[in-house]
Amino acid sequence: EVTIKANLIFANGSTQTAEFKGTFEKATSEAYAYADTLKKDNGEYTVDVADKGYTLNAKFAG
């Protein structure tokens, strides 16, 4: 089991951190699915991958 950390950075400057656990593939998929649920209210996002894929920095356009 691994933990994927998602740093969510919103256009207004606020941030949120979420963690997803499971296999690498499952946890990564859940992190992206969570970011997708936030698109409606926060706009499209881009992701910078860090820490060999164990940290995802998602920046929302607003």
Rank of each mutant, 00 (worst) to 15 (best):
E1C: 15
E1F: 13
E1V: 13
V2P: 03
V2E: 06
V2R: 03
V2F: 05
V2T: 06
T3R: 07
T3D: 02
T3P: 03
I4Y: 01
I4W: 00
K5R: 13
K5N: 06
K5Q: 09
K5E: 04
A6Y: 05
A6T: 10
A6E: 04
A6H: 01
N7L: 10
N7S: 06
L8N: 00
L8I: 13
L8S: 03
L8K: 00
I9L: 10
I9V: 10
F10N: 02
F10Y: 06
F10W: 04
F10R: 01
A11F: 09
A11I: 09
A11T: 08
A11E: 08
N12E: 05
N12T: 08
G13A: 05
G13W: 03
G13M: 05
G13E: 04
S14H: 13
S14M: 13
T15Q: 12
T15G: 07
T15K: 11
T15P: 04
Q16I: 15
Q16P: 00
Q16W: 13
T17N: 07
T17S: 11
T17K: 10
T17Q: 11
T17R: 09
T17C: 13
A18Y: 14
E19A: 09
E19T: 13
E19R: 07
E19G: 04
F20K: 00
F20Y: 06
F20R: 00
F20A: 01
F20S: 00
K21A: 07
K21M: 10
G22L: 02
G22T: 00
G22W: 03
G22I: 03
G22E: 01
T23L: 08
T23M: 06
T23C: 06
T23G: 06
T23S: 11
F24L: 09
F24E: 02
F24D: 01
E25M: 09
E25R: 07
E25Q: 10
K26A: 12
K26S: 13
K26T: 12
K26I: 11
K26H: 12
K26W: 11
A27Y: 01
A27E: 01
T28C: 12
T28H: 06
T28Q: 09
T28L: 14
T28S: 08
S29C: 15
S29D: 10
S29R: 14
S29M: 14
E30S: 09
E30I: 06
E30Y: 08
A31I: 07
A31W: 06
A31E: 02
Y32F: 11
Y32V: 06
Y32L: 14
Y32M: 10
Y32E: 03
Y32D: 01
A33S: 08
A33R: 10
A33C: 08
A33W: 08
Y34L: 08
Y34A: 02
Y34S: 01
Y34I: 02
A35S: 04
A35W: 14
A35P: 01
A35R: 00
A35C: 15
A35V: 15
D36I: 04
D36M: 05
D36K: 04
D36T: 05
D36E: 12
T37C: 14
L38T: 02
L38Y: 15
L38M: 12
K39M: 11
K39C: 09
K40L: 11
K40C: 12
K40A: 13
K40V: 11
D41T: 12
N42S: 07
N42D: 04
N42A: 11
N42L: 09
N42W: 15
N42M: 11
G43W: 03
G43T: 01
G43R: 00
G43A: 02
G43L: 03
G43V: 04
E44H: 10
E44S: 11
E44A: 11
E44C: 13
Y45P: 02
Y45D: 02
Y45F: 08
Y45Q: 02
Y45S: 01
T46C: 13
T46V: 11
V47G: 02
V47M: 15
V47C: 06
D48S: 13
D48E: 15
D48Y: 12
V49R: 06
A50R: 12
A50S: 12
A50N: 08
A50H: 10
A50C: 13
A50T: 14
A50M: 13
A50V: 12
D51M: 03
D51R: 00
D51T: 02
K52V: 06
K52R: 13
K52C: 15
K52E: 15
G53N: 03
G53E: 04
G53F: 01
G53C: 06
G53R: 00
Y54A: 06
Y54K: 07
Y54D: 04
Y54I: 06
Y54H: 11
Y54E: 06
T55K: 04
T55V: 09
T55P: 01
T55I: 08
T55W: 04
L56S: 03
L56Y: 02
L56H: 04
L56D: 04
N57D: 06
N57T: 14
N57E: 07
N57S: 07
A58W: 15
A58E: 05
A58P: 00
A58F: 15
K59D: 05
K59I: 15
K59L: 14
K59H: 15
K59R: 12
F60S: 00
F60Q: 04
F60T: 03
A61D: 13
A61R: 12
A61S: 14
A61N: 13
G62P: 07
G62T: 07
G62I: 06
G62H: 07
